[in-house]
């Protein structure tokens, strides 16, 4: 049996340390399996979130050797084995304990986003939409709310400017609503004035880490920026383009 060492962040925002654990490896093992093995055999108090173990729920976000990852998708055999595997919590949000962070800000932000508004509110008729018209919002709706994009976005991570920018996850949500073929609301003023879309300077770091391969910058943020620009700087174009 071969073993691997995990160097895991233990503690909270006031006091913390790294602790090393030796874990027996198995074929196809992922970092989350190793964490579970530590909980079961060495320290049951090690805190970590998970649910699906199949990259579907977005619970197990963390950083492995400094890279934002879903722990259930991070294969041990794809990491260097001759040094400890360093597992830390995501950085943008305050640590609660060990690998668990306080992501509640995201849920508060979500409350402020205007929901879908259909023209015929109250009707029960089936909606008519062509596949080709929903393809692009289906991409956005793949989001599993892992918040890895929020973790790498420099506005939120290094700048800690949650007061001025909702972050890429919520831009994706805006895009899914704004580009819904039957939506009638206009979220552009809000996007500019409250959600802070102008703060994003298109570094594309968010796109790189998205486990759902959503083209966050190209397909969501840039088109939203264009729509906002239409409204605020080019009222003529706006009249023509948005009927």
């Amino acid at each position: 049996m071969s073993t691997v060492t995990l160097r895991v962040f233990r503690g909270d925002s006031t006091s913390s340390e790294f602790r090393d654990y030796k874990v027996e490896t198995a074929p196809g093992m992922v970092v989350l399996d190793a964490i579970h093995s530590i909980q079961k055999n060495q320290d049951p108090s090690l805190a970590c979130r998970w649910n699906c173990k199949a990259a579907k729920c977005g619970s197990c976000s963390g950083e492995v050797n400094g890279k934002p990852k879903l722990l259930c998708k991070a294969r041990i055999d794809e990491l260097p084995q001759d040094q400890p595997i360093v597992v830390t919590p995501i950085k943008t949000f305050p640590v609660i304990k060990d690998l668990v962070t306080d992501v509640s800000w995201n849920y508060e932000v979500a409350k402020q986003i205007e929901p879908l508004r259909l023209a015929d509110e109250g009707s029960t008729e089936p909606l008519r939409m062509q596949q080709i018209d929903v393809d692009r919002i289906q991409e956005f709706r793949k989001c599993i709310e892992c918040f890895l994009c929020q973790d790498v976005c420099h506005v939120l991570r290094d700048g800690q400017r949650k007061d001025i920018f909702f972050g890429p996850r919520h831009m994706v949500r805006f895009a899914s609503l704004e580009m819904h073929p039957l939506d009638t609301a206009d979220r552009r003023p809000f996007l500019k004035e409250h959600a802070g879309i102008g703060t994003c300077n298109i570094t594309k770091c968010c796109t790189e880490v998205c486990p759902e391969h959503i083209h966050i910058t190209d397909n969501a943020i840039i088109p939203l920026k264009e729509r906002v620009a239409d409204l605020f700087f080019d009222p003529i174009a706006k009249l023509f383009r948005r009927r």
């Binding site: 029960t124 909606l127 008519r128 939409m129 596949q131 929903v134 709706r141």
Partner: peptide, 23 residues
């Protein structure tokens, strides 16, 4: 059927048939 159609009005975006209905 009512519940599924209602969900669509809440914002769910199901795959479509060629006629633009829920596949």
């Amino acid at each position: 059927p009512e519940r599924i159609l209602e969900l669509e009005r809440y914002g769910a975006v199901f795959d479509r048939t060629p006629e633009g209905l829920i596949s």
